[in-house]
Simulated assay, not measured.
Amino acid sequence: MSLFVAKKLVIYRSAMVALIIAGITWVILIIAPLELFSVSYLDLPKREERKAG
């Protein structure tokens, strides 16, 4: 394998790792809290019914 090809592979691998880490960070910081909020928000009417009953 030539040095040029090896450098290109390292660059592509680094870019892929950065994209994967960005995706995981996006899920942890953005998507997961929104889903937790929507679940607790949708559960709110059931909690009010339990208090009234």
Rank of each mutant, 00 (worst) to 15 (best):
M1S: 02
M1H: 01
S2D: 00
S2K: 00
S2N: 05
S2E: 00
S2H: 00
S2Q: 01
L3W: 01
L3S: 06
L3Y: 02
L3M: 08
L3P: 01
L3R: 02
F4I: 14
F4H: 12
F4T: 15
F4Q: 13
F4S: 14
V5N: 03
V5Y: 03
K7H: 08
K7D: 10
K7Q: 13
K7G: 07
K7A: 15
K7F: 13
K7P: 01
L9C: 10
L9I: 10
L9R: 08
L9K: 08
V10L: 11
V10Y: 07
V10P: 01
I11R: 05
I11C: 03
I11E: 13
I11V: 14
I11A: 11
Y12N: 13
Y12A: 12
Y12Q: 13
Y12P: 06
R13T: 15
R13M: 14
R13C: 14
S14K: 04
S14L: 12
S14R: 05
S14T: 15
A15I: 15
M16N: 12
M16Y: 13
V17I: 15
V17K: 05
V17P: 03
V17G: 03
A18M: 06
A18I: 08
A18F: 11
A18L: 12
A18G: 05
L19F: 07
L19G: 09
L19H: 02
I20E: 05
I21A: 13
I21R: 02
I21H: 01
I21N: 01
I21L: 13
I21Y: 04
I21W: 04
I21C: 08
I21G: 03
A22E: 07
A22V: 11
A22W: 05
G23V: 02
G23T: 04
G23Y: 02
I24F: 10
I24W: 03
I24A: 07
I24M: 09
T25A: 10
W26F: 13
V27C: 05
V27R: 00
V27N: 05
I30E: 13
I30F: 09
I31T: 12
I31R: 03
A32D: 06
A32H: 04
A32Q: 12
A32V: 15
A32K: 09
P33M: 01
P33H: 01
P33K: 00
L34E: 11
L34R: 06
L34V: 11
E35G: 11
E35R: 04
E35N: 09
E35C: 09
E35P: 04
L36E: 11
L36T: 08
F37C: 04
F37Y: 12
F37T: 08
S38T: 14
S38I: 14
S38K: 05
S38G: 06
V39H: 08
S40N: 11
Y41A: 10
Y41R: 03
L42C: 04
L42D: 14
L42A: 11
L42K: 08
D43K: 00
D43R: 00
D43M: 04
L44K: 01
P45I: 00
P45E: 00
K46E: 05
K46A: 06
R47A: 07
R47C: 01
R47Q: 07
R47T: 05
E48K: 02
E48W: 07
E49A: 06
E49S: 05
E49T: 06
R50M: 13
R50T: 13
R50W: 14
R50Y: 15
R50V: 15
K51W: 15
A52I: 14
A52T: 11
A52Q: 11
G53V: 13
G53I: 12
